[in-house]
């Protein structure tokens, strides 16, 4: 049980200080490795491994410029975002609908496990025939490829809502949309977001492969092109951009999760 007497300002200040310390501590290994890489590569000049400084210079020069951003970075992240949103917007309500019909999940989840098991890249040629190699294809490809964890986790979440919570809602006459939005959805949310998190990682993979195979532009395309033209520096710069993008997307999702699942984390911490 949290001490109810603890003054909020004191804990907040303490938290602020420890957060700073935490950031500094957690950066140590990353900083050391990058420094080591810089040191080694600036002495030995290996063919395939430019110095981190050079890579970062290339990132700033060729990628993080208005034109670099709009021609290469934006389209890629737009595809990821749209495909991912599409999968969430379709997958969560659909999973919810399936999960609410008692017993329906037993008929459909094995099929969905199968759908998830089909490696999405295998069906990329089919998507290309149907939708060409443009943005529509890539967004749909990402959406269809990543919807399975969202569906499966949503169904699981809805099916495993505490019976007692549902009974409580029933006794207090809470029905319809209020029951859906204030009882079932929050109760299933930890599972739903777990699926959403997995699907985000998958969305990046599918974005890259769709850009590498159905070449038209974007970060994945640039990385592969650079390698083919032996522009090693630009290839690494592209990888760094992808990593930065991944970190940003992950952080955004983590922030959303921390916000909406604050109760869940707290509850689990108390339970330990």
């Amino acid at each position: 049980m949290a001490a109810p007497t603890a003054s909020r300002s004191v804990t907040a200040r303490r938290r602020g200080r420890s957060a700073l310390r935490w950031v500094m501590e957690s950066a140590i290994l990353l900083v050391v490795l990058v420094a080591l890489w810089q040191l080694v590569t600036s002495v030995t000049h290996p063919l395939y491994f430019p110095t981190p400084a050079a890579i970062w210079g290339q990132v700033m020069q060729a990628w993080f410029t208005p034109s670099g951003f709009s021609t290469n970075i934006l389209p890629s992240f737009e595809r990821v975002t749209l495909g991912w949103l599409f999968a969430v917007v379709v997958g969560v309500p659909l999973g919810f609908a399936i999960g609410r019909v008692r017993g329906l999940g037993a008929y459909l989840t094995p099929l969905m496990h199968y759908g998830r098991a089909v490696p999405a890249p295998v069906v990329l040629p089919i998507f290309m025939i149907f939708f060409g190699i443009g943005n529509v294809m890539k967004v749909l490809f990402i959406a269809v490829g990543i919807i399975w964890p969202i569906l499966l986790n949503t169904i699981k979440g809805v099916e495993s809502v505490e019976a007692l919570q549902l009974d409580t809602a029933t006794v207090y006459g809470i029905r319809g949309s209020r029951r859906l939005l204030h009882v079932e959805l929050p109760a299933a949310l930890p599972d739903i977001l777990a699926g959403v998190r997995i699907s985000l990682a998958l969305a990046f993979v599918l974005m890259v492969i769709s850009e590498m195979i159905a070449a038209s532009g974007g970060i994945g395309y640039q990385i592969l092109q650079s390698q083919a033209q032996f522009d090693i520096l630009n290839m690494w710069a592209g990888i760094v951009v992808l990593a930065v993008g991944g970190v940003v997307f992950n952080a955004l999702l983590a922030a959303i999760e921390a916000r909406v699942l604050r109760w869940h984390r707290g509850q689990r911490r108390e339970a330990l």
């Binding site: 290994l29 990353l30 990682a201 994945g220 970190v247």
Partner: peptide, 26 residues
């Protein structure tokens, strides 16, 4: 754990396929 956390968080999101060119070179 604390010292490596940022390193892990920075590397983890790199999609494997983005490293394909590096792997091909190597």
């Amino acid at each position: 754990y604390r010292m490596s956390s940022l390193l892990v968080e920075a590397m983890r999101p790199i999609p494997a396929l983005a490293l394909t060119p590096v792997a091909i070179l190597l």
